[in-house]
Design a protein around this nucleic acid. Structure first.
Lengths: 224, 224
DNA sequence: TCAAAAGTGTTAGGCTTACACCCATGC
DNA sequence: GCATGGGTGTAAGCCTAACACTTTTGA
């Protein structure tokens, strides 16, 4: 059944793409997939794909993300819509881009797709990318940095429980700048949203760290 | 010449819509047009329309804005993309929404289109709107309020020269809250971006106000 | 002379920044 | 016992918020 869909005037195609961030090895990482088909065959690109005709934009972004990388149930938010006429050599494509945050304990992108088709890259060591995806990632990173300052977004990059050093590591990896430990702790604890679990995390030959949990981790709130 | 454009899978339509804000009578106003055709015929809606196949998104927004309201050369920024499958009863439509800021000395929306087809409404007294445009305007207002706090956006709602009371009026109209005059002035002048023109504005039977100008009004910058 | 908006300083409290040493553990 | 990251307090400066009266003009 190969029919075709006709309109009295031309329609662009719509895709969604997703910039997935995570933290590994103290560095902010972005998930990329290798393109199996032209255009840009063999190059790395953001996961994403065409919008189904009765599908919500966010649903499309989540579906493509899971199909191509196995990642699901993560924080996802619309970023920006890119639509320069020449950005896809095939046809006119408008891409509604989302960004997502994946806790580092819930990553095996390779599982659901073929090995070597999906890989994490440090933000500061990206390969050459297909389309305008390099600029897209830059915009996403700027948004992420901005929102760290006035929201509880950072916790979306952590497991449910974490130490204060891990949390500080997230801020430092995203902002790409070192922070003062005492000031950081005062500020974070001053929010009054962190609860100690009572556990201690033993993580090497040094003093164990207290383990915390965010009160309502699912909702990303404005703070300050 | 009525041909049709066919694709191997269905394509949604893409529109751009624009939320134009301005200030009149100390109140934040939104520009609406009355729909001449179904759906929602006769109802008020945001200016906007279908994307041409080789047209940039922002170009489309500016073109539709000028065609429908006569407004041009204003600050314009992408807001959000709305794409719920059922938001337009005709066909699947994804709308890339922009917001614009028009200085109150450069408004005659009615000039370029038919009288009564375009009108300013106070944000707090909008008529019933077509599509999901009420929610769209809410999102735009939230963005505008947020950006007032960390950018020089407010000046886009003013003529090139203005008094400090006029500037404060803009903040108060957008934020819908009164501000302290002395604190406001200290903060604004503390930016170091305002220059006195030397003129005085005589505006009633009271002390004349000093007239100011922003140093680089075209660029909207982050402040603070 | 009166009404109306323009213009002007100070204080208290809170937040931000800079900064250095002891603690608990594993090897 | 030593290397490693965990944990803690204070002071100075800056920003914010609250608050009321005098000045200049036009009618």
């Amino acid at each position: 059944m190969s029919r075709s869909y006709c309109y009295p005037y031309p329609h662009p195609a719509i895709t969604t793409d997703v910039v997935v961030f995570s933290i590994q090895a103290q560095r902010l990482q972005v998930l990329l997939i290798r393109r199996r088909q032209p255009p840009y065959q063999g190059m790395w690109a953001l996961p994403g794909g065409f919008l189904n005709i009765d599908e919500d934009l966010e649903t499309c972004a989540r579906r493509e993300l899971e199909e191509e990388t196995g990642i699901r149930d993560v924080f996802l938010e619309q970023l920006y819509t890119f639509g320069k006429p020449e950005r896809d050599p095939r046809e006119r494509v408008v891409s509604v881009v989302y960004y997502a945050l994946a806790p580092f304990d819930r990553l095996d992108p390779v599982a659901a797709s073929d090995a070597d088709a999906a890989r994490w890259f440090p933000l500061d060591a990206l390969p050459t990318l297909a389309f305008d995806h390099e600029q897209v990632i830059q915009v996403a990173h700027q948004r992420l940095m901005a929102k760290l300052h006035y929201s509880t977004l950072a916790f979306q990059l952590l497991p449910e429980t974490f130490t204060l050093s891990e949390l500080q590591g997230v801020y430092e990896a995203v902002l790409q700048t070192p922070l003062d430990k005492r000031n950081f702790r005062r500020k974070i604890l001053g929010l009054g949203r962190l609860k100690q679990t009572g556990e201690l995390r033993r993580n090497g030959r040094h003093r164990p760290a207290r383990v915390f949990r965010l009160e309502h981790p699912e909702q990303v709130e404005f703070i300050r």
